[in-house]
Design a protein around this nucleic acid. Structure first.
Lengths: 119, 119
DNA sequence: CGGCAACACTTGCATTATGCAAGTTTCTCT
DNA sequence: AGAGAAACTTGCATAATGCAAGTGTTGCCG
């Protein structure tokens, strides 16, 4: 998706090289809401294409935003979750969420979004 | 860039439909730093292409994030600035800035970025 | 143990966005 | 009027996204 060479040393530009697209933060949103399996991400209302989902998960694994772990519900299967580093993206998510709620008509909160800072 | 129909009623998704790309928030960053002319945005270290810059400014005008006004320095010319609504994006910018500074090696603060909440 | 279904992807190809360079228009200043 | 800079626009190559169909890998049931 993005080249390996940063466009500049600006922290905003570099962060956008990582999460500045239409899908990455939605995957992170789903992870923050506790989703952990490929099919769960697929079911989100935005209907992410499987190739893009696969691509983003791989990228996020590389950057250690996300990690795999053995699924508890389905033995023998892997699942995804935010790493410690990944969880530090929540303030960004929250600021975007708040802006949308406030300034974009028709957007609705979802119960699960109330800050579960514990997770 | 993005279709007019929202992907979902999620505030995160809708906000990303507006600013979720590699360039839009960089233009907003420049505006937040006080840049106001086309050529100033062009000169930023990320070297935005003129067609993309033009496209983003038009979009931001449509969404009333940005407005034109007569330039003070160059009489007879227009310039761009954030609207009141546009300025409300600053917390998003700031959260992204902070994350970059903290988690991306080699990123550097720029003096002008210290919050001038007044502007 | 064999087969089928669900899950987790991968592949191929059409569409859209981005990147780059060059061209055009508008405005200012002399 | 003419030069030069600023502000775009256009054309075309490359890369990202979207969509549908295909493949391999469990998991379970008989």
């Amino acid at each position: 998706m993005n080249s390996q060479t940063p466009r500049s040393c600006c922290p905003v530009a570099c962060t956008l090289d990582l999460i500045g697209d239409k899908w990455t933060l939605l995957v992170i949103r789903d992870l923050a809401l506790g989703k952990s399996h490929f099919s769960e991400f697929q079911k989100s209302p935005e209907r992410i294409a499987t190739n893009i989902l696969s691509n983003r998960l791989t990228r996020l694994l590389e950057y250690e935003i996300v990690e795999k772990y053995p699924s508890e519900t389905i033995p023998g299967r892997d699942a995804y979750r935010l790493t410690k580093k990944g969880k530090t993206l929540k303030p960004i998510l929250k600021s975007i969420f708040n802006w949308g709620i406030r300034y974009i008509e028709g957007t609705k909160s979802f119960d699960e979004m109330r800050q579960n800072e514990s997770s």
